[in-house]
Write a protein that binds this DNA or RNA. Structure first.
Lengths: 342, 342
DNA sequence: CTTAGCACTCTTATGAGGAGAGTGCTAAGG
DNA sequence: CCTTAGCACTCTCCTCATAAGAGTGCTAAG
């Protein structure tokens, strides 16, 4: 922000323009500034000041003989120099406190989901919360636990942040004792190493082994390396996408899309809607439950993992390439089913 | 679809109308049908058939003297009776196979993320994949493990589906032996119970205890009940939201929003962008890295968990209520920070 | 430096007119 | 009875012209 210096009067008028524009979403005229602002000046004087602000790049006219709207630079000056953050009212803080109390003993994912819900309610904007990304975390403990039927659970605890786990599958058979030995080995290799170094460390130590482990263990270690890669376990939570689409800067025909992206839960609900499908199921336009989907179609397939079914598919406008997409979803759901059947 | 019966010719023409509309995104005229369709009829005859289709509610005219577009019912008939799914080419199947091979040993979340990526690439539509929802799953094993500093890791393994874990925090102090005893107790109570019954079961058994456990254990069990509630651990993966917004049915000014919602990773990237923030940070319009955000602002705050920082905030158009929202984000990030500091 | 007054510009709304697209109808032909 | 050629009709879309309104830039006086 170096280089932009404003007089008090310029600041005041910039603030009036910005706050007027935020309120009305329309270019702000000099007379409108005179009306709302505390300065007692004529519109002609305000116009002179506005011209100075325009020359400094803080506001602009969409066209000659229109009012002014703020530029990014104008907002920047406003945020850096003029904004006084508004605290929450006592009532709001109290309400938030009691909501928050419910989250005290929950895990990070639940807390973040709750926070993004609360923020989006309070702000009437889309709220997001992301868990810390894990590149610099130091591994304290790694464990592999056989949980039967070719499935192995991997757990990694780091010095900070959430503990991460995953279930890995192997194609071969193994004995519990072998898994346990592999677990001890990994632990010896990785304790004190950061997550971002983990994959390279495994590769390096693997090369030093004689003989090199093969078969199910080799495959397993590939899975472990993906599992340990930074970013793999982090998660984003968001809520309130509908608020973005409701703003007048976006045309109303996109407003319905806001509902689809309103939160992860909404999206999951849309896809999970037609649960009793056998093969590939097509839900067209107004057949959808979600009101935001009345002009969209969903092509969904199912896959099984153990005894329960999951869903996958594509979402697009009703005007979509059904023959191709039905074939595609059918193929992928079968392939996924096979992959998870191992 | 009972009640709608079409002659062969009506079917053929319906198909031409739908496929023409899918291709061109414009109303299809009778002469256009004659041009592409194999039937050798005059446009006047086609018009007569179209009128019959319109009376049956399968197609409609946006206005008099325009071509026809399909209704939801038209698409429904088409999907149920006329679509022959198109298989993938050998080349596509091969490419998919080799991509898929990389996912063999990965956990479910990674597999689903990979699948939604592949489907969105292949379909040029938004792809989604959801893990099975867990209400009916039977609990095989529950474990609580103390991992130091008031933190306890909870793990639940069910007969099917992904194993779920969470880190719970307690406000009190405890001994490892106590945690271990609580773990055994939970296991005895819950083994064989479904996830959806778990919470009620804990409450019931808790009532039978004499004396009722209090202090840190009571709080912990509240956390466990939230953790075990069905749906808490499921997750959606999606990718390719940009494809929805690119379709001509939505106006171009919303197209940039597609990029923001393109995938969970994109959204996380946007929020994580300005990492070195001290307090609340405002990123305005073109200051954003993401090209889809040039007309949006991000107000982000940080929270600490252990030594690493996470981020939370709101996203909206540059025309937003900065004073209120900066105050709000500041308050919530502080409150979240405090909550996680325990 | 401020302001009143006024000419100028640009948007927006409205309506008219013409071209083009596509239909509905009718009457003739197979 | 079904099909089709021909034609009138309707509706959209584009352009142009006009008028009203909003808001500015400029200038000269206070």
């Amino acid at each position: 922000m170096r280089g932009v210096e404003l007089t008090d009067r310029e600041s005041t008028i910039l603030q009036s323009v910005i706050e007027g524009y935020v309120r009305e979403a329309k270019p702000v005229s000099s007379s409108a500034v005179v009306r709302v602002s505390s300065v007692s000046l004529s519109s002609a004087t305000v116009r002179n000041v506005m011209r100075a602000l325009e020359e400094k790049g803080l506001i602009l006219q969409p066209h000659t003989s229109a009012g002014r709207i703020p530029t990014d630079l104008g907002y920047r000056y406003y945020v850096d120099n003029l904004v006084k953050p508004v605290g929450l009212t006592a009532g709001e803080r109290k309400a938030i406190g009691s909501e928050l109390a419910k989250l005290v003993h929950c895990d990070l994912a639940t807390v973040l989901a709750g926070i993004s819900h609360m923020v989006s309610e309070a702000s009437r904007e889309m709220a997001v919360a992301v868990a810390p990304s894990g590149g610099g975390q130091v591994i304290e403990q790694v464990a592999l636990v056989a949980i039967g039927a070719g499935r192995i659970m991997a757990v990694v605890a780091t010095d900070v942040g959430p503990t991460r786990t995953a279930v890995l599958t192997t194609d071969g058979t193994f004995r519990r004792a072998e898994v346990s030995r592999a677990s001890d080995l990994l632990n010896k290799w990785l304790r004190g190493v950061t997550l971002s170094e983990a994959s390279a460390t495994i590769e390096k130590r693997l090369g030093e082994q004689d003989p090199a482990p093969g078969g199910w263990l080799g495959g397993l270690l590939d899975g472990v390396r993906v599992f340990l890669s930074p970013g793999g376990g982090e998660r984003i939570h968001y809520e309130g996408a509908r608020y973005i689409f409701r703003h007048p800067e976006f045309s109303t025909d996109a407003a319905s899309l806001g509902e689809i992206f309103d939160s992860e839960e909404t999206l999951a609900e849309v896809v999970r809607g037609p649960v009793k499908a056998a093969e590939v199921r097509v839900v067209i336009g107004a057949e959808n439950i979600c009101s935001g989907m009345t002009r969209m179609s969903l092509i969904a397939g199912t896959y099984r993992i153990g005894g329960v079914v999951g869903r996958m598919g594509v979402i697009g406008p009703t005007r979509m390439k059904y023959p191709r997409l039905i074939g595609l979803v059918g193929y992928f759901s079968k392939v996924l089913d096979d992959l998870l059947a191992e």
